[in-house]
C-alpha cells in the first residue's frame, strides 16, 4: 500500500517536474529581457512562518508599469538596477532573470521522481523481478 502511494506521488512529481522543465524552456524562449529597479525590501512570512525578505522590483513592460516581488536579491541595495524577463502579453510570467540553475532544479526533481518510480515499482513487483533476474534463486 505504501509502495503504491509512493508510486503515485513519484508519478505526480515526474509529471510536475517534466512540465516545469518544458514550461521554463518555453518561457525563456519567448521571454524578453529588460531592466528593473529595486524599489524596496519587504518582510513577509513563508509557509513555515519564518521571516523572509522580498524585493519589490519595478519595471516597464508592454508599455505599462509593473512590479514583481521576489526573494534572493539581498546582495543588491535598494535602487539597484537588475535584469528581469517578461513574456509579452503574459504578466504572470514576469520574473528576475533566472540564474544558471534554472534547468537544474526541475532536472533534479525528475531524477528524484524517477528514483521513486524505480523503487516503488521494484517493491511492488520484487518477487517477479527477483525471479526474472535471478532464476537460480528459485
Amino acid at each position: 500500500m505504501i509502495a503504491f502511494l509512493f508510486l503515485l506521488v513519484s508519478l505526480a512529481l515526474f509529471g510536475g517536474a517534466l512540465r516545469a522543465l518544458f514550461a521554463t524552456h518555453r518561457m525563456l524562449r519567448s521571454a524578453v529581457r529588460t531592466t528593473g529597479r529595486i524599489r524596496a525590501f519587504v518582510e513577509t512570512r513563508d509557509s513555515d512562518g519564518d521571516k523572509v525578505m522580498h524585493a519589490l522590483i519595478d519595471f516597464e513592460a508592454d508599455g505599462e508599469h509593473r512590479t514583481i516581488e521576489t526573494g534572493g536579491m539581498r546582495a543588491h541595495p535598494v535602487g539597484a538596477i537588475v535584469p528581469v524577463v517578461y513574456v509579452p502579453g503574459d504578466p504572470s510570467q514576469d520574473e528576475p532573470l533566472p540564474d544558471i540553475h534554472v534547468y537544474t532544479w526541475p532536472a533534479c526533481f525528475l531524477c528524484i521522481a524517477l528514483a521513486g518510480i524505480v523503487c516503488s515499482l521494484g517493491t511492488l513487483f520484487e518477487a517477479s523481478l527477483f525471479r526474472f533476474f535471478f532464476p537460480a534463486l528459485y
Binding site: 525563456l28 524562449r29 544558471i100 540553475h101 534547468y103 537544474t104
Partner: peptide, 16 residues
C-alpha cells in the same frame, strides 16, 4: 549546472 549552466543558457537563449 554550476560549471556549464551559463554556457547552456547563452547557447539556448542568446537573446536573454
Amino acid at each position: 549546472g554550476g560549471l556549464f549552466g551559463g554556457w547552456l543558457l547563452r547557447k539556448r537563449h542568446p537573446h536573454l
